[in-house]
Each structure stands twice: as structure tokens, then as C-alpha cells.
């Protein structure tokens, strides 16, 4: 079992409350996943590059990076994580520099708008440690984990990000993740953990790198991913939802004029503003649902 939540705001009305709403949703899904929790928040103007790091002495690392790049790098700390503001186009260089100079520092996510936080512990504690309730943004996805396929570690927590501004949360378990991991490694996709869900994230990144849209990549996953899944995938502009062909894992959605919300169970949506008048529905199996600010 695991719990997933997602909140996509259609307008700016609740942007300043995005984190507070998501914190309540995550906390409500504690019963489904008390091991660890994580979330990705999309916000900011999209200028430059944001990179979320986990590790020690992140402020010092930002200073060292400023010297290395010859440009100002700032870092905003949130608990055990920090978000670097970097010049655009420096992601690969910074990753390589970190690997060489600070190999214990983990990049949890990077892109124009993504910030990605995850930690072991009860969802409410994790949300509070990162100050989720004070965060704002346009959309976000979150996960509460009850581990099945790999150990309870921070690295094994969701979301998994394997591409710029992309991340995935997963409820379910994949049976062919070992063989698929080998295929992906052969294709040059970097998989960091033994977790099955990271393989799904890597698979989508690989497909999109080959030119597929997110919807096409998810559709292809129906053939290539063997197992049970409800996925919510975050992108720079929105999120997408897909359930396996027998809808093994639960999902419910609520849509109003102001937002589209996803949760494993309705009770995580019950506190959202105006949800009593929302269109509440269950996403169908094998069907890709996507919301974007671009369209």
C-alpha cells in the first residue's frame, strides 16, 4: 500500500496555499504510508535552473559553486534539503562537479520549476520538517510510502525524478523492474536505487527522450510495465494520471473551476476548498489523464 496525492491549480487563487493544502492531503494519507513521504512542488518564474539537494553544508556548497561557475549561486534551506538557484544550462556541469567534490550530496530533482523533497518518517512530520505548509506554487504531487519492493530509506522514498522537471509517484508494485532496469541502464538512463518505481520514472524519461509525449510514454508503459500501478507524473506545466488495466490500486479525483485534485482516497480531498461542489470521479483504467497550464 501507498498513498498518492496531487493538486493542480487552474488559476492563481490558491497558489499561496498550495503547500498548506498539500500538507493536509499528505497527512491524511498517513495510514496508507507511514514509512516515509515526499513531494514535488512546482513554482517560480521558470527562469534559471533550480536544483534540490540533500546533504550536509549545502550553503558552503553553494558558495563553492559560485566560485566554480563564476556566477552567483544561492541556496535556500528547507530542513535536510536545499534549493540552489543556478544559471540556466548548468545542470550537467553541476552534477558532475558535485559527484567529484561532494559525492555524498544527493540531487533529488532539477529543472526550471521543480523542487523535490523526501524523507523517512510520518508524512505530517516530513511535511513539517520541510515547511511544506508555507510553500506556494502552481501544482504539486506527493507520496506516502509503505515499502514493499525495497528498503525504507530516504533514497527509496518518492517522488522519483529522472529528468528535468519530471517526477513520478507510484502506488503499486512492478514485477519486471529488474529486467527493465537492465534495459534502461543499457540505454544510458541512470537509475540510482533498487526501487521499482524509479524504474518506471526512468522508463518514462527514456521514452520522452526518444521523442514521445508524456501521454505517449505512459501509453507505452501499459505494454512494457508488468505489475500494478497508479502513477501520477509531474511535469513543468502540470501532471498526468495513469492506472493499470485492472485498476488494482485506488484513485479518486475532484475537479472545480479552481483546481484538479488527485488522491488515493477521497478523505485526502475532503478538506479542499469547495470540494463539496466539485465533480468527483474515479479515473478509468488504462486511460491517460493529463492537465497542463500550457494547453
Amino acid at each position: 500500500m501507498c498513498g498518492i496525492v496531487g493538486l493542480f491549480l487552474k488559476n492563481s487563487k490558491y497558489e499561496s496555499q498550495l503547500g498548506a493544502l498539500m500538507a493536509d492531503m499528505l497527512s491524511e494519507m498517513s495510514d496508507r504510508g507511514p514509512d516515509s513521504a515526499g513531494f514535488a512542488i512546482y513554482g517560480g518564474t521558470g527562469e534559471g535552473l533550480k536544483m534540490t539537494l540533500r546533504g550536509e553544508n549545502l550553503m558552503d556548497i553553494a558558495q563553492e559553486l559560485s566560485l566554480h561557475l563564476g556566477e552567483t549561486v544561492t541556496c535556500k534551506l528547507h530542513g535536510s534539503h536545499g534549493v540552489l538557484s543556478l544559471p540556466e544550462g548548468t545542470a550537467e556541469e553541476v552534477r558532475a562537479w558535485l559527484a567529484e567534490n561532494h559525492p555524498d550530496t544527493v540531487v533529488t530533482g532539477a529543472g526550471k520549476r521543480i523542487e523535490l523533497y523526501k524523507e523517512v518518517g510520518l508524512p505530517a512530520d516530513v511535511a513539517s520538517a520541510f515547511g511544506l505548509a508555507e510553500m506556494s506554487g502552481t501544482h504539486g504531487i506527493g507520496h506516502t510510502r509503505m515499502a514493499t519492493e525495497s528498503r525504507v530509506t530516504t533514497d527509496g522514498a518518492h517522488p522519483f525524478s529522472t529528468g528535468p522537471d519530471q517526477c513520478l509517484v507510484h502506488n503499486g508494485s512492478l514485477s519486471n523492474h529488474a529486467s527493465l532496469r537492465r534495459v534502461l541502464k543499457h540505454q544510458g538512463v541512470k537509475i540510482e536505487t533498487e526501487n521499482d518505481s524509479e524504474v518506471a520514472a526512468g522508463y518514462l524519461t527514456w521514452k520522452m527522450h526518444d521523442g514521445a509525449s508524456l501521454a505517449e510514454a505512459l501509453k507505452a508503459g501499459l505494454d512494457d510495465l508488468d505489475g500494478f500501478f497508479t502513477f501520477v507524473v509531474g511535469t513543468e506545466d502540470g501532471f498526468a494520471v495513469l492506472r493499470d488495466p485492472i485498476s488494482c490500486k485506488p484513485a479518486v479525483m475532484a475537479e472545480t473551476d479552481d483546481y484538479v485534485a488527485f488522491a488515493s482516497e477521497y478523505r485526502a480531498l475532503a478538506g479542499l476548498p469547495g470540494v463539496e461542489d466539485a465533480h468527483v470521479f474515479e479515473p478509468e483504467p488504462s486511460r491517460v489523464y493529463a492537465w497542463s497550464h500550457v494547453n
Partner: peptide, 10 residues
């Protein structure tokens, strides 16, 4: 009987 505020409880 009438139960108020069920809020999706199981």
C-alpha cells in the same frame, strides 16, 4: 440516525 461530516471516512 444521521451521520454528519463523513469526509470519506472508512
Amino acid at each position: 440516525w444521521r451521520a454528519l461530516n463523513p469526509a470519506g471516512r472508512h
